[in-house]
Design a protein around this nucleic acid. Structure first.
Lengths: 139, 139
DNA sequence: TATAAACCTTACTCTGGCTGAAAGGTCAAG
DNA sequence: CTTGACCTTTCAGCCAGAGTAAGGTTTATA
């Protein structure tokens, strides 16, 4: 199978697959006589694994580590389990940050709605709103 | 005032201030006879505005646009208000995505806990868990 | 007066995770 | 014989800075 089919089967782009190969995430594949990359079902599985891990937010280095363990026939499961919980905690933190941010954005918008919006120099300009409301030192 | 004081007053690093200048977000400042950058209070205000907008998640291009409007003495308020709500919606979407992701991570972790973690080849390996659980085609 | 320290300058490279462009090779159909 | 769909390589660029090098200037202290 050529690279396009692999891309279609895994949901990645051809570029991304070549990129993964270039950083060592995927081994150099067989080549057809004309130099084209030639993949099989086991490649599909590996690429799917990589794509899945990336979708879960794992960095390429993490995926490398897991794959290296797997390739050495060591059980990466414990490592993966730890990474899973660690990643989940990170995501949780990020969610909390974004919630604060969203609240702040809506608050500013509501505040901006309450006064005329064509006052460039006055205190009521939304621009000043950003510079004076947002940049207060944190409590 | 030199760049360090400006940095302290705005909470940015000196590097970041120079970077903002290099991308046109801040105008080239006056220079002291020795070539050092020389800022005043209006620069503090502008940098604070930029920093505030960045903290709200606006891209540098957005900030450019807003500042350009302001510099042309047009009222950017309506634009800013629109951007605020647009950004808030984006953040809301991102939060939803991350929530799904966190749930998925915790689900996988719980699932991984329920069986032995040293089974490299069997179906019970967490690695297979990633490749077979996560990469299912979206329903 | 020497020198150390604290400040400043420009210019370059590096990050992560790709994506795009350029310039070309290969192969089947019409 | 040409068109078009594939494929190949390599280089450059994106964001938003951070890090480092190699130097110039000013101030405080010994």
């Amino acid at each position: 199978m050529q690279i396009k089919e692999l891309a279609q089967k895994t949901g990645l782009t051809e570029k991304t697959i070549r990129y993964y190969e270039s950083v060592g995430l995927l081994p150099p594949p067989r080549r057809l006589p004309n130099g084209y990359r030639d993949y099989d079902e086991s490649d599909v599985e590996r690429v799917r694994f990589v794509a899945g891990a990336r979708r879960l937010g794992f960095a390429i280095d993490d995926v490398q580590e897991i794959l290296a363990l797997r390739d050495r026939r060591e059980a990466p499961c414990r490592v993966v389990l730890e990474l899973l919980i660690q990643k989940a905690d990170e995501v949780q933190q990020r969610i909390a940050e974004l919630k604060r941010l969203e609240e702040e954005l809506r608050r500013l918008h509501a505040l901006g709605q309450t006064f005329p919006t064509d006052d460039v120099d006055g205190k009521n300009c939304v621009c000043h709103l950003i510079s004076t409301e947002v940049t207060k030192p944190a409590p």
